[in-house]
Nucleic acid binder design. Sequence first.
RNA 1: GCGGACGUGGCGAAAUGGUAGACGCAAGGGACUUAAAAUCCCUCGGGGAGAAAUCCCUGUGCCGGUUCGAGUCCGGCCGUCCGCACCA
Length: 790
Amino acid sequence: VLARFRRAQGFNVLHPMGWDAFGLPAENAAREKGVNPRDWTYANIAAMRAQLKQMGLAIDWTREFATCDPEYYAEQQRLFIEFYKAGLVYRAEADVNWDPVDSTVLANEQVIDGRGWRSGALVERKKLSQWFFRITAYTDDLLSALDKLDRWPEKVRLMQKNWIGRSEGMRFSFDLTNSGKVEVFSTRPDTLFGASFVALSPDHPLAEHWAKSDNKLAAFIEECRRLGTSEAAIETAEKMGFDTGVRARHPFDPSWELSVYVANFVLMAYGTGAIFGCPAHDQRDLEFAHKYGLPVLPVVIPDGEDPKTFDVGHEAYVGQGQLANSCFLDGLSVEEAKAEVARRLESAGQGERTVQYRLRDWLVSRQRPWGCPIPMIRCEHCGLVPVKESDLPVLLPNELQFTGAGNPLDSHPTWKHVNCPKCGGTAQRETDTCDTFVDSSWYFARFADPKSDAPVNRKAADYWLPVDQYIGGIEHAILHLLYARFFTRGLHRLGYTNIDEPFAGLFTQGMVCHETYRGDNGDWIEPAEIEKRDGKAYLKGSDTQVIVGHSEKMSKSKKNVIAPEAIIERYGADTIRWFMLSDTPPERDIEWTDEGAEGCHRFVQRVWRLIGDADRLPPPGTPVVDPADGAALELRRAVHRAIAAVTDDLDNLRFNRAVAQIYTLANALGSAEASIPGAVKREALETLVLLIGPMMAHLAESCWRALGHEGLVVDQLWPKPDPELVRSDTVTMAVQVNGKLRGTIEIARGADKQIAESAALALDPVARTLEGKPPKRVIVVPDRIVNIVA
RNA sequence: GCGGACGUGGCGAAAUGGUAGACGCAAGGGACUUAAAAUCCCUCGGGGAGAAAUCCCUGUGCCGGUUCGAGUCCGGCCGUCCGCACCA
């Protein structure tokens, strides 16, 4: 709709379509059906392309590509190497979700209740050498630039902000009594005198080091790892700690020693992997302290509480207050105490103020065969070496064996065996492929010139980018949209674009939902097998009742999918298009119903009937002579009001309101008197057709032809409203007494307040309510309302 | 637990602080028809008065506040949904 609307307004519109085509579904099909993932994918693309073409979506198919096209992923490999050379790609050890049955890494989303989603095996945490994109090189910018994305939904910006998770605090060290020191991160250095223990993550290097000579500690660490990191595990997990026997000296009092624990609730991936525990002012520390009998000393006292008697009980106090029991900090506010601690630790060289982020680098390695091969080679002598420019692309093998466990690229007899590009000796190709989110992180730049022999054609990208209007589901709020923002910055650094933000405008649309049906045995039943009688649902042609479930996102697993072909066959594509746009605002989920589709189809027919007597109208181009006749003038006003309203609604993506405006215009046309001059009727009909053009493209063309035009609606300019006709000469003003509606007055637009006031006071119900007394006050908002205070 | 959004007829929904329910779906009544479909007309938040035209009361989750005026703004509850989740 937008593509057609903007084109009609004279814009040069690029509305492309492509296929995010690598990934697990093709692999699963390969495993389950024994098909080649490539053949399966391209067959699906062909089917979906045909469906989309039937819908008349005004897509520029000359720019179409799929991410699994070698021409596309070849350029992606080139980018990967350029990112690597620019320091934005690196390889490092990382904790990953490892499925021991499928012997592959799983994404977090693929771990359900601690088990691999496909194999059902308990997922292990494993340290593996993996490829990363250095997204954290842009953390600050990714965060601060969110403020400038003023055409993005607030919700998405907030989600990204939370995901990046900026916290200001301090890093500082505790000296250990055995030897060395441990660095912690804290956002509450002001509570340092309330410290009662130090805790390390089970994955902390010191913990692992000490475990070598402490079997009990080693066993404890092992147990922590086994409990896993799934949400369910975390929610139910109790705080567990192991006293290492090592003691830490308080930074401000070397004689004060704190126990050093290894604790299951300390994450290695955040901060330094070590904390100091202040139970009075942190709920987790409090629970831990209660369990292990550690002291709870309040050091921030809320206003009105006595420091001597203040007791936090079972809820840590995290609010503002005055410092107490804190030596040189006593009497300061939380903010003042933070500054003072920072000043002292920094000047003593014991620590520094830092900003800590939640965002971590993006792990892109996947032990998966249906993805873009990472174009790197591992040589025993030379280390990691990028594939030579002249050897690109690294193509996937034509045939892959999915029978065994693990990555078929790794078990392929020849594919990974290559010579080192540097020394020429025997070497191995990287058999990991890129996370499919990499594929979708730069495709929009490729659309500017999809045949370019560079990844991105700078000139074309400068012309088209950023994307003026991006549309996608809310599920992309963090992952895809954050990755694409990162990639665009990388492309900028490499000189492929001059922008940092890929999407100037973002709209998150809802999904199409449908009722679900189940039989007595619990099996899902397709809508096509259902018929409804007297409010109940039955198996078609039988008296077997079925259970009607909630309306849910259409999905194959619940069989509540409506195939577009069947609807197009029955009603035509425009009925689907009109349905999608009607009633429900586009950001919300929409429920597909047969009744709604019927209603939309009736409107399609109605528009066609309105055009029906077009041959009795004067020919196209007949000028409208200013109608003196009231009914003709009213119709013209309706026409121009509709133009103004629909234009405004489409400008703001309010398709459901635009639909309502068009219904209003159709109603006006339907009840138009026969006496109205033909030229006025023609203007109204032609406007109706032009306004529905972006929405019901096919119907509009048929109507345009029936109205006697040679050309196409798609080549017509968007109509412009006549301001004189949009604005009426008179207005209806509401008249209230004490805020309650008592009547309305019809009055000249822009009439004097006095005139409105006397007209209002003259109304019968107003006089009745006032009971002859003079009003205390009269508020007149010109052209809107008169409110009389009695 | 933290963060956010939302709550309006039977349903989907409208409503720059200014006539609540536009527009559509469903439902009911009527016209046309031998009949049905299609189409057209009327009714359609709740309650009440009237022969009728009309009129009155009440109503946007609940309680309070600001305002001449609140679905809309503010505070507190209740409920639903979403995101993050042991992030120090």
